[in-house]
């Protein structure tokens, strides 16, 4: 049974196919309005989430399907001590496909190994969040026209930010990609990503703590939130949380065609005044995420012989 745990579970060809499918959905949504009729998506969110859960649910509704949701983890079987494996084996009997978020890293793999329907990882702790990367890729493709020869600035929490790690890995498969890694010393990209992905594939990158000085070279600026929940110490979080704030003034230093992305939610790392700048693409990312989830649901249901 095919499940998607990591964006790297998809080949470059499959990513192209998903992007083409999402573009077709955008062009002609009526063609897809009944495609998942009488199919059910189970959304199992063991930790709070607003946008990802709603995006999956909206995606399934727009495909003509139904959604069954687990109520909050606190009142579910998980609170009674049921394992992920048992929960998934049970829920597999009710639905055609599952989207799951869980605070523990690797929970999605446990789910996939025990499910009799496809599982989509909707985030497993700080590990993977493949559909966010799919949203990022569709946004880059739509805004830049291709994935080739792009200089991408990654800014903020590059240590714990799972979307950054996934985006690095996904974009390293395209020719001409360069990265500018902008972060405080304490939140630098981990060496296993630098060594395992960038150096291994010969991807050029520079590291800096200076956002302003980097802007002029970028095609894409990918901002991230300093995530309170990933810190063991509140003191450390408070010291680093305001490291980078993108403002209208800083945007004046950026190229006219540079786009600004952010996986959201933001706290204060992008000033609200930047939202009106035509280069701000983070709310487009949200919409693109829904289309890519629609494309992925269709693909996995077809592969499972359920469509």
């Amino acid at each position: 049974m095919r499940s998607i745990i990591d964006v790297m579970d998809l080949s470059v060809e499959e990513l192209d196919e998903l992007i083409a499918s999402a573009e077709d959905i955008i062009k002609d949504p009526d063609n897809y309005a009944e495609i998942c009729r009488r199919k059910k998506l189970g959304t199992l969110f063991f930790e709070p989430s607003t946008r990802t859960r709603m995006s999956f649910e909206a995606a399934m509704y727009e495909l003509g399907g139904h959604v069954i949701s687990m109520s909050e983890a606190g009142s579910s079987s998980a609170a009674k001590g049921e394992s992920v494996a048992d929960t998934i084996k049970t829920v597999s009997n009710y639905v055609d496909i599952i989207a799951m978020r869980h605070p523990k890293e690797g929970a999605a793999l446990v789910a996939a190994r025990n499910a009799s329907v496809p599982v989509i990882n909707a985030g497993d702790g700080g590990h993977c969040h493949p559909t966010q990367t799919l949203a990022d890729l569709l946004t880059i493709h739509r805004e830049k026209g291709s994935f080739e020869n792009l200089t991408i600035g990654l800014c903020g929490d590059l240590k714990f930010g799972r979307t950054v790690h996934s985006l690095c890995t996904a974009m390293s498969r395209y020719p001409g990609t360069k990265f500018v890694l902008i972060s405080p010393e304490e939140l630098k990209l981990p060496s296993y990503v630098k060594k395992g992905v960038l150096k291994n594939k010969g991807i050029p990158y520079t590291q800096t703590t200076n956002l302003e000085g980097s802007l002029k070279d970028l095609d894409i600026l990918y901002m991230t939130r300093i995530q309170r929940e990933r810190f063991f110490s509140e003191e450390e979080y408070l010291r680093l949380k305001d490291s980078y704030i993108l403002t209208e003034d800083k945007m004046k230093l950026a190229p006219e065609k540079m786009i600004v992305m952010h996986p959201l939610p933001r706290v204060n790392e992008i000033s609200v005044s930047v939202d009106d700048d035509p280069r701000a693409c983070y709310f487009k990312q949200v919409l693109n995420g829904k289309y890519m989830r629609m494309a992925l649901i269709i693909k996995l249901l077809k592969e499972a012989g359920r469509l």
């Binding site: 394992s83 992920v84 869980h102 523990k104 890293e105 690797g106 446990v110």
Partner: peptide, 13 residues
């Protein structure tokens, strides 16, 4: 040994 790993909590994994 990662305290955030599912192996720390999942029964008999």
């Amino acid at each position: 040994k990662n305290p955030r790993c599912i192996t720390q909590v999942e029964q008999e994994l």
